[in-house]
Design a protein around this nucleic acid. Sequence first.
DNA 1: GTCTATAGGCCGATAGAC
DNA 2: GTCTATCGGCCTATAGAC
Lengths: 196, 196
Amino acid sequence: METITTEQKIIRAADKLFTQKGYAATKTRDIAEEAGTNLALLNYYFGSKENLYKKVVQEKLRMLLGAMGPVLSDENISLEDKISSITENYTTLLLENEELPIFILNELSVNRKLFEEITQNTRQIAQPAIEKQLKERKMEISAKDLVVNTLSLTMFPFVAKPLFISSGLVKEEEFVEFITGRKEKIIGWIMKTTKK
Amino acid sequence: METITTEQKIIRAADKLFTQKGYAATKTRDIAEEAGTNLALLNYYFGSKENLYKKVVQEKLRMLLGAMGPVLSDENISLEDKISSITENYTTLLLENEELPIFILNELSVNRKLFEEITQNTRQIAQPAIEKQLKERKMEISAKDLVVNTLSLTMFPFVAKPLFISSGLVKEEEFVEFITGRKEKIIGWIMKTTKK
DNA sequence: GTCTATAGGCCGATAGAC
DNA sequence: GTCTATCGGCCTATAGAC
């Protein structure tokens, strides 16, 4: 008997609208309507629009960073497996949440102070473990570039999807296939960049 | 004797604030103040906030696409030179306009209808010329992936800059150096992905 | 062309009945 | 817990003096 509480309805509606339209463009009345309740209950449960927003962002950020953090710092995982794992995790996550990265990246850019409050406890992206693995194998690329390149190739197509589509480079109906195809190739491309 | 007209002052102020904070979060009063005039003049010159916004977006989009379009479709430019040129153009452009890509990509995602009005005359990203060049040289990558990878490696670091900085992967004061360093390497990485 | 003053509407938040 | 009604403020846009 899984009933959805009003509180959950509101947070789901907020999630949907904040992610679609951003903080400023989303109205509390719209959230209430989307949730099938009213404005008063939003404030009853969450106190304010900003508070509700923080709840949503915290969860989204956790999703986005969760797909990366634990894998990178583990020295027992080989470099190839790290890249594969990150690409695999993100591709799966982002196919189900296409607007997640542009939402987080934009709100991080627009609203940096709010984010600093939220992310103060977030772990650093682990470089040392990777740097070590690179040196052991005498590779031609820095840890920073390796991480940045992997994330770029994996995430950018989602961020730039509307641009690619409106420019005709990729068609909407091909998109999932395009991304799925890339998933297999990215590990190969990245590995080529580590060699002479 | 180059005097800046009030109209120009307003559009520059609007450019700055829309790019920093997005459409909904930018108030017409703030634009007027930033421009050193008043709210009434904004409407006198541009009619409405939305109109002013369209002017700004149109110019920004022209900047972003202008760095790519003409190069790609020219068959007389070799593949290497195309990649170099795109990376070079974008790196220069984005170092001077760091917030340009995230602004355009986000507003494109949030406000697709407004963009469709604006971009209806925009040229397509030319694939055929590249596809031909790839086949002639029997390369291991599709034109789509080649273009997407080049743009990803070049633009994503700007889009994700706040994430990289807040996660400690790159430091603010290293950023320009980091990007400048990558500019030289990207052509090499991309070329490696075209070979067995 | 430029300004001040203000109309008119929307927004976030709350009071208070049930 | 849930609702309706409403406050007080801010926002875009415009009227009208200069």
